[in-house]
C-alpha cells in the first residue's frame, strides 16, 4: 500500500464528502429555518442532473448545463414549496416524512415518464478532462479536483451569505424566533420560499456535477439523500458548520473504509474471509459512525435542537 494510493483515496474521500456537503447544506438549512424534514431533497438532486444532461445534449456546453441544473432545481424547489411544503410547516414530523415521501414517488416516476428508464450521460468538458500532476508526482483527475474547489467555494459563499448579509441575518433570526422577525416586517413566506429554492439549487448543482462522473438515472437521488441525512445528523441538524464537518467525515469514512478495512482484516484472517468481512463492515461504516456519534452526543456534534 503506497503513500500515493493513500493520498489519492484521501482526495477521493474529500471529493465525495464535498459533494455530500452540497446536498446536506440545503437539507440542514431547510430543517434549521423551517423545521421541515425534506425527503424529496434527493429528487431535486435528480432534477438538476437531468436538466444538465438534457441541456448539455442539446447545446454541448457544460456551463449552460450547470446553469440549467441550478435554474431547474431552484424552480422545482420553489414550485414544490409554494404548492405543497408551505402547508406542512406546522404539521408533525410524521406528516412531513409521508408528504415528502409522496413527492419522491411523483418526481421519480414523473421523470421516468418523460425521459424513460435508460440512463442519460453527461460528459466531462474538454478543458477539465485528463489528469493533473500534483506536487510529489501524484496524478489526479482534473475534474475531481475542480469539484473539490467548487465545493469549498460554495461552502465559503454560504458562510458569507449567512454571516455577512442582510438575508443571512433574517435566516438566522428565522431559526431562532419566526414570530418575532415576522413582527419586524420581514415577509416570512417569501423568505421560506427563497431558502427552499436556495437549498434546491445546491442539490441540483451537486446532481449535475456528480452526473458527469456517474450516469444520470431515476433513483440516483435516494442513496445520496440517505447519506446526506446521515451527514446532517452527525453534524447536528441546522448547523452548516456541522454539515461541512459531517460531510467530510462521512466521505472519508466511506471511501477509506472500502479500501482499507479488507486490508486490515487480512492482517489476522485468511484472504477470502477478510475481504468479505472487511467489505461488509465498510458498507456499514458510515452508519456505525452515525450511531456512535448519536449515542455519544444525542443531538449531533454541533446541534442544539431535537
Amino acid at each position: 500500500m503506497s503513500t500515493i494510493l493513500i493520498f489519492e483515496q484521501v482526495l477521493n474521500g474529500l471529493q465525495f464528502g464535498i459533494m455530500l456537503f452540497l446536498m446536506a447544506a440545503g437539507l440542514t438549512l431547510i430543517f434549521g429555518v423551517m423545521g421541515l424534514i425534506n425527503l424529496a431533497h434527493g429528487s431535486l438532486y435528480m432534477v438538476g442532473a437531468f436538466a444538465a444532461a438534457w441541456v448539455a445534449g442539446a447545446t454541448g456546453s457544460f456551463v449552460f448545463a450547470l446553469i440549467a441544473a441550478l435554474a431547474a432545481a431552484a424552480a422545482a424547489g420553489a414550485l414544490v414549496e409554494i404548492v405543497v411544503i408551505r402547508r406542512l410547516y406546522r404539521a408533525a414530523h410524521l406528516d412531513q416524512v409521508l408528504a415528502t415521501f409522496a413527492l419522491i414517488l411523483i418526481f421519480s416516476e414523473g421523470t421516468r415518464w418523460v425521459f424513460g428508464s435508460f440512463p442519460l450521460f453527461l460528459d466531462i468538458p474538454e478543458t477539465l478532462s485528463g489528469p493533473v500532476t500534483l506536487p510529489g508526482g501524484i496524478e489526479y483527475p482534473r475534474y475531481r479536483l475542480t469539484l473539490i474547489g467548487i465545493g469549498i467555494a460554495v461552502a465559503l459563499g454560504l458562510w458569507w451569505l449567512t454571516a455577512r448579509t442582510r438575508i443571512g441575518i433574517q435566516i438566522r433570526a428565522g431559526e431562532n424566533d419566526r414570530e418575532m422577525i415576522a413582527a419586524l416586517g420581514v415577509d416570512i413566506s417569501k423568505l421560506y420560499t427563497l431558502v427552499f429554492a436556495l437549498g434546491a439549487a445546491l442539490a441540483g448543482l451537486a446532481g449535475a456535477l456528480v452526473g458527469a462522473i456517474q450516469s444520470v438515472q431515476v433513483g440516483m437521488g435516494e442513496p445520496v439523500l440517505i447519506l446526506a441525512f446521515v451527514v446532517i445528523v452527525i453534524g447536528g441538524i441546522g448547523s452548516i458548520r456541522g454539515a461541512f464537518i459531517g460531510a467530510l467525515l462521512v466521505g472519508l469514512t466511506d471511501t477509506l473504509g472500502g479500501i482499507f478495512l479488507p486490508e486490515v482484516f487480512k492482517l489476522f484472517m485468511e484472504t477470502g474471509a477478510a475481504t468479505q468481512t472487511g467489505s461488509a463492515l465498510a458498507s456499514m461504516a458510515v452508519y456505525i459512525l452515525m450511531s456512535a456519534v448519536l449515542i455519544w452526543r444525542p443531538t449531533g456534534l454541533f446541534g442544539a435542537r431535537g
Binding site: 416524512v97 441538524i237 431535537g306
Partner: peptide, 20 residues
C-alpha cells in the same frame, strides 16, 4: 437515547446496517 428527528434517523441507520 435520542428523540425527535434524531430518533427517526438513528433507526434508519440501524436498518441500513442490516441492509448492507
Amino acid at each position: 437515547r435520542t428523540t425527535g428527528v434524531y430518533f427517526i434517523m438513528i433507526t434508519l441507520a440501524f436498518g441500513q446496517m442490516f441492509f448492507y
